Computed example of a mutant assay.
Amino acid sequence: MSRQLHSSKYAKLREVLTNERLTVGITQAVLAQRLQRPQSFVSKFEIGERHLDVIEFIDICDAMGADPRVILGKVTR
């Protein structure tokens, strides 16, 4: 199975993560600071220039105070 950045499921994941970040009211810069990463890291996964591995996904959810299982549930609906 190839890792397609622009598949419909990956696009949905990016949308859900971005919406979650906006819902909790934090900027890309704040999320990046919580992750101890540059702001461009957040920007790149949100616009689809970068893939996330499962550990990064969990770390992002934790940094936003989101349950990774709930986020994945929104992606698979």
Rank of each mutant, 00 (worst) to 15 (best):
K12P: 03
I71A: 05
S43R: 13
F41I: 05
Q36I: 03
L72R: 10
E56W: 07
V70A: 14
D62T: 08
Y10S: 04
K44A: 12
S2W: 13
Y10H: 08
L22M: 15
S43M: 12
R21T: 10
A29P: 07
T27N: 07
T27L: 09
R34I: 05
E49A: 07
V75M: 05
T76N: 12
K44Q: 15
T27H: 08
L5E: 01
D62Y: 15
R34H: 06
Q28L: 08
P38C: 11
E46F: 05
R77A: 04
V30D: 07
N19F: 11
V75L: 01
R77V: 05
Q39Y: 00
S2E: 13
R14K: 07
E56V: 02
C61N: 07
A66M: 09
L17W: 06
V24R: 13
D62V: 11
V30W: 01
L22T: 14
R3P: 00
E15D: 03
D59Q: 14
A29W: 09
V75Q: 02
R21I: 07
H51I: 09
F57N: 03
A66R: 08
V42Y: 05
M1E: 00
Q28F: 04
V30K: 04
T23S: 15
I26R: 04
G73C: 11
P68Y: 12
T18A: 03
F41N: 04
A66V: 09
I60M: 08
A32P: 07
Q36V: 11
L52S: 02
S7I: 00
H6M: 02
E56K: 00
Q39D: 10
